[in-house]
Design a protein around this nucleic acid. Sequence first.
DNA 1: CTTGACTATGACGCAACGTCATGGTATATG
DNA 2: CATATACCATGACGTTGCGTCATAGTCAAG
Lengths: 255, 255
Amino acid sequence: MTYTIGKVADMAHVSVRTLHYYDAIDLLNPSYETASGYRLYADSDLESLQQILFFRSLGFPLAQIKAIVKSPTFDRREALEAHRTALLERRKAVERLLAAVGCTIEAMDKGETMDTTTMFDAFDERALEEHRTKYADEAKQRWGTTDAYVESQRRTSKYTKENWKRIQQEGAEIREGLAALMGRSPSDPGVQALVKLFHEYMNSNFYACSFEMLSGLGDMYVSDPRFTATYDKVKPGLALFIRDAIKIYCTANGA
Amino acid sequence: MTYTIGKVADMAHVSVRTLHYYDAIDLLNPSYETASGYRLYADSDLESLQQILFFRSLGFPLAQIKAIVKSPTFDRREALEAHRTALLERRKAVERLLAAVGCTIEAMDKGETMDTTTMFDAFDERALEEHRTKYADEAKQRWGTTDAYVESQRRTSKYTKENWKRIQQEGAEIREGLAALMGRSPSDPGVQALVKLFHEYMNSNFYACSFEMLSGLGDMYVSDPRFTATYDKVKPGLALFIRDAIKIYCTANGA
DNA sequence: CTTGACTATGACGCAACGTCATGGTATATG
DNA sequence: CATATACCATGACGTTGCGTCATAGTCAAG
């Protein structure tokens, strides 16, 4: 069974122009074509379109959607369930906004002065958008990431609770790994490998960290007693050990 | 008191370009101008800007905002109630989407092929957009009509990006504010006020953040190198300063 | 064979700014 | 007082996801 462009547009509640556009940007090319050049969409095309609209409804840019739907690890079932989860959160967010608006109106009735911040809160749709983006981030992680997106995702992901936990854990692992090697010399290949891991880890997960910065960080671990305490709590002398290891690592790399 | 465009941009968390644009479309013309053509904004201009941003946060197109803020019959109270009505409709719309998604998943489990029309209903966000338009139309009737009101569905997706930038900017400002006060004691009232601001910022932008969590967050800023680096990049030692300030703030609030 | 509904491909337009490019201006410092 | 640098000005073009003509070919019905 095939469908003309108008039929598809009606079924999917999109415009013919939209389908033209999706064809033009190679987001959705119809499987068939009549002799006279009419587009003919197959059932599989309809499914693709559904997926596209799904991600569009999440606020994904079309370029990203293109990358995602072409990913081989894409699971429609999972997408649906995730969508439901997102909707549930959205409902909760609406509830919160309703409560905020109610409070504001109440305050107004009592003649209280409305400071601008409270007023803004009542109308603040950021709550809704936050869930949307958060979910979008998760979805992107699950269904494939393009290089361009990894960057922006990294920035936003550090705000989620789960990530904070993960970050803490990863940081702890590196510290403990170094603590375990404290018997060796700071220049020991194993130690240096860990420092390098640490550096790469910062670079890839956070931002470009120059050797100078890394070196300064190491100094601070030792020079500030409160830093020292934090690190030496893992194992006495760890702060100093890390600093030395970092120093060697940095000089070995020309800094 | 007058302010240059850059100052206004900083205060209102908008870009200079935005203010240029608002001037160009006569949405907000600064009251004064220097001999050399610099824009000078008066306090009254700031109030206008607040209102503009208020309606912008509701997703109103600028053309309509222009009509609204110039209308003499503008009533905040009415705006709030209308907004609540809109939220109630939005909640209903979310319910419908949830039902549609549920049906789709169910049909999938049974291995049925869904008929095409209902299949698309699951992701049809038009329902959500429709009430938004309806609300806007009502507002238009109430607060005056615009000559050229054109509905824009893409507002939402742009709004998301814009918001993230704003959130990040707010965070950066708080950090810089704290960095500027690093000479003082962490218990200094000015410092504590900023910490409170930070707490509110976390609450409104990310998730409900208890005093315990906040305290833990402060610890992490010190114990996790990645966070330490971010904060110390603003100013060396800032991470520690913030942690101490947070600690004092939390104990002062009974945690 | 005409009519009217449908299709095709350009090409331009729109919001709401971002992002240079280019150049003038205010002000702190050597 | 010259210079550096941080701000300001005005274009002008880019962006996303299509809407909206304009022009023209196609298909089924009457």
